[in-house]
Design a protein around this nucleic acid. Structure first.
Lengths: 208, 208
DNA sequence: TGGAAAACATACTGGATGGTATGTACAATA
DNA sequence: TATTGTACATACCATCCAGTATGTTTTCCA
């Protein structure tokens, strides 16, 4: 007979510790970049020690990779892929998201930017492991936008001559650019202006 | 009578040394970020020593500020402000620039991205001195694009109902986003696709 | 032409930081 | 219950790196 569920609570302690380290590392990376993240700060934020960190991760790089694979992936999944996949009017979802970004994401989006784009901009030229992981995530993200645009196109909400693949690529890049511009200016007004420019573009895709 | 020009050729030229340090620092920042830049690497690249560096700059931060004020400013000036100010058809200049970015800038634009945007993304949330300097540069850049759009608008090349201020903000942000996307993917094809999406948008501003 | 100041070079320091070596409590088997 | 492996804690090291102290050479100028 297998051990009862009571003992299973202790195994989850390990998972919880690992998760706590990952989330603290994510916050530190979000605020200071990967190179700026200090492992001492991560363990201090969790209340743990270096022994715990190095028990779960072999080194700083592996911790960074795990943050991409487990934390950042979840964020994109929940904020974009799931809402876009389930909604019957995807174009409206995209436009709504852009228009209400600061409300939907935290206010950190203005002061700190997009955590995924920050990390990609910093590490892509320096570390191929980061680059491939983040590029894969971007491909999924772009693919979900493309699929959303195509569904809206089939519903007649978007003109038939629009190249949804190219448009998805551009929209995602422009969105990253808007968030980056707002971060440089440290201004949510800048995010509004820039976002409304992107919305104007999306509206121009509608049939005449 | 002042000393003849012959002596000006002498080995020690303060301005040239300072400039050499600035350019080496720019390259290091471009490749590794400001936090990733090592002063030892900068002096090694110039063939000088730390004594020279600390004679011309009080500390690392001041060196970084000077790179923004003197090197990056010049790059934006030469690549954007001057071409846009002198040309009779500014919209065509913008479109041409976007379409031939990799040729006009170096190939580093794909592998390393935009030096100004890189630095802004890294340092704006961390250091107010960097942020204000870079924000000022962005304002000038955006202003020149806005002026260009307005001139094209007065020439009838752009529709009268277009908000040139908002459009300039969006175009600059989208452009940064495109370069960033290409850098993440390490793909000049990505830059082409993304850039053509931006060009499509600019073309849509023309009268029907 | 001498002397002061500028323009460098050389050698060093101290703190920060990623990583390691080792010890210990505890749960899971056997 | 003895044993073993897991999940941490503690203390420490080695290196990197911004910054400094000081010496030397060149330039400027009175």
């Amino acid at each position: 007979m297998p051990t009862p569920d009571i003992t299973a609570r202790s195994e989850r302690n390990s998972d919880r510790t690992r998760r706590a380290i990952l989330e603290a590392a994510f916050q530190e990376i979000y605020r200071n970049g990967f190179q700026g993240m200090r492992l001492d700060d991560v363990v201090a934020a969790t209340g743990l020690t270096k022994g715990a960190l190095y028990h779960h991760f072999p080194n700083k790089q592996a911790l960074g990779y795990a943050v991409v694979d487990e934390i950042i992936r979840d964020i994109i999944q929940q904020a974009w892929l799931e809402p876009l996949a389930s909604d019957p009017n995807p174009l409206a979802v995209i436009i709504h998201f852009i228009g209400h970004m600061e409300t939907l994401m935290g206010g950190d989006i203005v002061t700190l930017g997009c955590p995924m784009n920050n990390l990609a901009q910093e590490m892509s030229p320096l570390d191929e492991g980061f680059r491939t992981r983040l590029d894969l995530l971007y491909q999924e993200w772009r693919g979900s936008i493309q699929a959303a645009l195509e569904r809206s196109q089939q519903a007649g909400v978007i003109r038939a001559d629009v190249d949804c693949s190219k448009t998805a690529t551009f929209v995602l890049a422009a969105l990253s650019g808007c968030v980056g511009a707002a971060k440089n200016a440290q201004s949510s007004e800048q995010l509004q202006i820039c976002g409304s420019g992107l919305i104007d573009y999306l509206e121009s895709l509608r049939p005449a």
